[in-house]
Amino acid sequence: MEESMKNITKTMLAATLAIGVSATAHAAGADDVEAAYQQWNEAFNSGDAAAVAASYTDDAIFLPPTHDVVEGPEGVQSFFDGLFQNGVTDHQLEVINVMEDGDEIVAASRWSAKGGDGSDIGGIATHVFERQDDGSLKLKLHTFN
């Protein structure tokens, strides 16, 4: 009976530690996503399509609501150049959920901006980030509606 209690205690301790580590990893991933979103918003709100494109991996896939499949930073830059020419501004991202698995982080968010006519626009976005060697995040997949 005493040995059984020791095993139960060890199991509970291990589970508690695993939950704590998972929560810490999730918090770190969420913090990293918030930082990446802040950087992305700053690039967008400066109207700098090249700076926005720098947030994407070389093999990134970007799926805008136009149903186009945009590939790589060059394609992303071209897309956002068009948005900026049409006067879209004041972009914000609000995290809904973050899930981390190794070097990949998936984030769901709400986005909002001002249309070229000053109207409020927005929707939902999904981002798959890839952690870089320096610890920063770059977008590998981005889609929104």
Results as ranks from 00 to 15, higher is better:
residue 2 E to W: 09
residue 2 E to M: 10
residue 6 K to R: 15
residue 10 K to R: 12
residue 11 T to Y: 10
residue 12 M to T: 09
residue 14 A to K: 06
residue 15 A to Y: 06
residue 20 G to F: 05
residue 20 G to S: 09
residue 21 V to K: 09
residue 22 S to I: 01
residue 23 A to Q: 14
residue 25 A to D: 08
residue 26 H to C: 00
residue 28 A to C: 04
residue 29 G to H: 08
residue 32 D to S: 14
residue 34 E to D: 15
residue 34 E to S: 11
residue 35 A to R: 06
residue 37 Y to M: 09
residue 39 Q to D: 10
residue 39 Q to G: 11
residue 39 Q to W: 00
residue 43 A to H: 03
residue 44 F to I: 01
residue 44 F to A: 01
residue 45 N to M: 05
residue 47 G to D: 06
residue 51 A to Y: 01
residue 53 A to C: 03
residue 54 A to Q: 07
residue 56 Y to V: 06
residue 59 D to W: 01
residue 60 A to H: 02
residue 63 L to R: 10
residue 63 L to F: 10
residue 64 P to V: 06
residue 67 H to N: 15
residue 68 D to R: 13
residue 70 V to C: 07
residue 71 E to T: 13
residue 71 E to H: 13
residue 71 E to Q: 13
residue 72 G to T: 01
residue 75 G to N: 04
residue 76 V to C: 08
residue 79 F to T: 03
residue 81 D to C: 05
residue 81 D to A: 09
residue 83 L to M: 11
residue 87 G to K: 09
residue 88 V to Y: 08
residue 93 L to H: 11
residue 94 E to V: 10
residue 94 E to L: 01
residue 99 M to S: 15
residue 99 M to C: 02
residue 102 G to N: 06
residue 103 D to P: 05
residue 105 I to N: 01
residue 106 V to D: 05
residue 106 V to T: 14
residue 107 A to T: 07
residue 107 A to E: 08
residue 108 A to Q: 14
residue 110 R to G: 01
residue 112 S to E: 12
residue 112 S to M: 09
residue 117 D to Q: 03
residue 117 D to I: 00
residue 118 G to T: 08
